[in-house]
Amino acid sequence: MSDATASALLHEAEDDARKAQRGRFWRRVRRQPLGVIALIVLVLLAAAVWLGPLVYRTAPNRTDARNILKAPSAAHLLGTDELGRDVLARVLAGGRVSLSVGLLAMVVGLAIGMLAGGLAGYFRGRVEVVVMRLVDVFMAIPNFFLILVVVTAFGNHPVTVIVTVGIGFWAQMARVVHAEFVKVRGFEFVEAARALGATHPRTMLRHVMPQVAPQAIVLASLGVGWAILTEAGLSYLGLGIQPPLASWGNMLQNAQSYLWLKPELAIYPGLFIAVTVLAFNVLGNALRDVFDPRG
C-alpha cells in the first residue's frame, strides 16, 4: 500500500466518520429546542443592539438636566434616566458594549487558552511543563483578585477591561484544550497523519482542531456569559466600563441609587444581562449535549 493510497483511505475514513457524525449531530440538535430558542434570542438581541440605532436614532449620551427621570413618552420610549438621557437608547448602546465585551473577552481568552493549551498538549515535554505551570499560577490567583489588580494598574479603558476579563479565563480554557489535545494526540489518524509527513501546524489544524472544537465552542458560549457577568461585577465596584460609555453593568450600578425613585432603571439593564447570559448558558449547555450526548 503506497503512502498516497493510505492517505486517501485515511481521508475517506475520516470523512465517513464525519458524515455519520453530522447526521447524528442534526438529530441531536433537534432534541434541543431550548438551545435553538436561546440562539434565536441571541440573534434577535444582537440585531436589536446593532441595527436598532438605525431605527431609533435618539443619542444615548445626550444629557438634559431639566428632563430627568421622566416616564415613557413618544420622545423617550422607555423614559429618561437620572441625567435626562434616553433609557432605550442607552439600553441599546449598553448592549453593544456589553455584548462586545463579552464576545471579545471570550475571543481573547479562547485564543490564548487554545494556543497555550494546544501547544502544551501537542508538543508535551518542556513546553507542557512551562505552560501548564503558568496555568497553575493563574488558576491559583482567584480571578477577581487578578482582574482587580490589572484593571487598577492599567485603568478602565474598554480594551483593558476586555483583555483583562479575557485573561481571567484563559487558564481554564487552556486546561481543557490541553486535556483534549493529549487525548486526541493518541488517536490513530493523528499519528498516521504525522507518519505520513504532515507538518505540525497542518496536523494541528486539519486533524486535531476539529476534535477539540466542540469542547472549545461549549466553553466559549459559557465564557461569553461569564464575561458579561464579570464586567457587571467590575462595574459594581466602579472598575468596569466607564461613563459616558454605557454598558449594562454600569447602568445597573447607576440605577442602584434610584431604586426607590425609579426601579425601572435597574430592571431594564438587569433583565437584559440576565436574558443574555441565560441565553449563552442555555446555548452552551445545549451544545454540550449535542456534542457529548452522554451528558
Binding site: L229, A232, A266, I273, A274
Partner: peptide, 8 residues
Amino acid sequence: GMSIPGFW
C-alpha cells in the same frame, strides 16, 4: 444561578 449578577 449562572445568569444573574451576584451583586444584583
